[in-house]
Write a protein that binds this DNA or RNA. Structure first.
Lengths: 227, 227
DNA sequence: AGAATAGTGTCTTTCAGACACTATATG
DNA sequence: CATATAGTGTCTGAAAGACACTATTCT
C-alpha cells in the first residue's frame, strides 16, 4: 500500500452565464496556450496554492481576471475526469457554475479581446476546447433546474430590477413563459426581496424596482414551476 | 504565464449510507496509514490511472474493496479543498455519496475488521480523520433533500421490497413520518416500479413485493414531501 | 381617448396530508 | 373472534396555472 500514485492534472473551470436580450450567454476565452491553442474554452486554470484558499477562490480569481469582478453567484457544478480528455494525460477538472449581470461586466469584457459572451444557441458553430461543450450543457441544465425552485436567476440582473425583468430572465432560462402572478407570489413568499423607493418607466405604468434584502439567503420553494 | 504550478494532493472519498433498524448508517474504515493513523475515516484514496477510467471508477473500486460490491447508487457530492485540511499540504478531495442495501454488504463487512457501519447519531463520539465529519453531514443533507423529491432511498433496500420497508427507510432518512398513501401515489406516478409475483408475510395481511423496473431511471417529482 | 405595461382577484388544477374505511393475514 | 398490517376512498389545504380585471403612465 505504499505505492506512489501520480497526481492527475487538476484544473478549475467556470461556466459564467448571463442573460441579455432574451438570450442566455456564456463567457468564453480564446486559448492562448496549448493544448487547443486558438480554440474557445471556459475561463479557468490551475490552483495557485500561494493565493487560493480553496477551489472557489481559484474560480473567482480566474473570473475576475477576465471580467473585472467576482460573480454574484458561484457554486460547484461537477468534477469531470478521464485519461483522454486532456492530451497531456489523465486530468480532473472541477467545473463551477456562475452568474453575473450583463451590465456589470460588459465594459470590461469589451476591453479584453480574448474574452467574449457567446449565445448558447451559437455554441454548436464553435469548436470548443476539451469537453467544455459538455460541461456548459451540464451547467445549463443545472441552472434550468434551479430556476424551477429558486430565485437564482436574480443574479443575472443588476441590484435593482423589475418583476418584468426577472420574469424575462426566468423565461429565457427555462425557455417557457411563466405567469406574472406566479412570480409575484413567489417573490412575496420568499421574503428575500425589498421594494425599492424607485420606480422606472416601462412604456405603460411605472414599474416598481426591487432589490435583494442585504444578507438574504436564497430559499428553495417546495414546488417546481412546470416545464 | 508559464509558471509551473504544483498540483494539489487529490483523493476520492465516499460516504456510503445504508439504513438498518430505523438507523441511518455510514461505512467507515480504520485508517492504516498516516495521516490520522488509527482514526476512523471515509473509504477512499488516490486515483489509479492504470485502472480507473475516471473518479467514479475510483470511488467504486475503493468501495468494492471494503464491501465486496459496487454500490447500487453513486453520485458526486462535492469537492472540498484547502491548504490545511491535510497535514501533507494543499489537498482536494472529491467526495461521493453512495447507497447500498444492508443485507447485500453485511457479511463482507463483518469479515473486514477495518470497516464498520456506524450509526449517524454515534458519530459525535468518534474522532474522524480530516474534515470527514463535515463531509458526512453534507452527504446526509443531500440524501435528505433528494428523498423529498425522488425515490432515491430504494437503493438502501434489496431488489425486492415492500411499501412498508420503503416507507420506513424514507422516514428514517428524513426523520419524520410520512403517509402510506402519499408514498403509494408516488410509486404509481413515477412508473418505475413493478409489482413482483411474490408477497411476503408481515404480521397481518400479506405485503406485495415491488422491484425497480429494469433500466428505469429515477424521476424527480415536482413537489417535495414536507419536512 | 387609446395603447401599453404594472399589478390584483379569483377560479381551476394538481398533489401532498389526514384519516377513516375496507381487505386479508395470523392466532 | 380479535388484532395487526396492507391497501383504498375521499376530503382538505397549499401553491401553481389561467385569465380577466383594475391601475397607471404615455401619446
Amino acid at each position: 500500500m505504499s505505492a506512489e500514485y501520480t497526481n492527475p492534472l487538476f484544473t478549475v473551470d467556470s461556466v459564467l452565464f448571463t442573460v441579455k436580450n432574451e438570450q442566455l450567454l456564456v463567457l468564453l476565452v480564446k486559448r492562448a496556450q496549448a493544448p487547443f491553442i486558438g480554440d474557445w474554452g471556459l475561463p479557468g486554470g490551475f490552483i495557485d496554492e500561494k493565493i487560493d484558499n480553496n477551489t472557489d477562490a481559484t474560480a473567482r480569481r480566474k473570473l475576475q481576471a477576465k471580467t473585472g469582478l467576482s460573480p454574484a453567484y458561484l457554486e460547484q457544478l461537477q468534477a469531470i475526469s478521464g485519461p483522454d480528455r486532456d492530451p497531456r494525460g489523465f486530468s480532473v477538472t472541477l467545473a463551477y457554475f456562475a452568474l453575473v449581470a450583463y451590465q456589470d461586466v460588459s465594459p470590461q469584457i469589451a476591453s479584453v479581446e480574448s474574452a467574449s459572451w457567446i449565445a448558447l444557441k451559437d455554441l454548436a458553430k464553435l469548436n470548443l476546447a476539451f469537453d467544455h461543450l459538455h460541461i456548459i450543457e451540464a451547467a445549463r441544465q443545472r441552472l434550468q433546474q434551479k430556476t424551477l425552485y429558486s430565485m437564482t436567476p436574480v443574479f443575472c440582473l443588476p441590484t435593482q430590477f423589475t418583476i418584468a425583468q426577472l420574469k424575462s430572465v426566468i423565461e429565457t432560462i427555462i425557455e417557457k413563459p411563466i405567469q406574472r402572478k406566479s412570480l409575484m407570489r413567489r417573490i412575496e413568499a420568499s421574503d428575500i426581496f425589498e421594494i425599492s423607493e424607485e420606480k422606472i418607466p416601462s412604456g405603460g405604468r411605472m414599474a416598481q424596482l426591487y432589490t435583494l434584502k442585504p444578507g438574504a439567503d436564497l430559499v428553495n420553494f417546495e414546488r417546481n414551476l412546470s416545464l
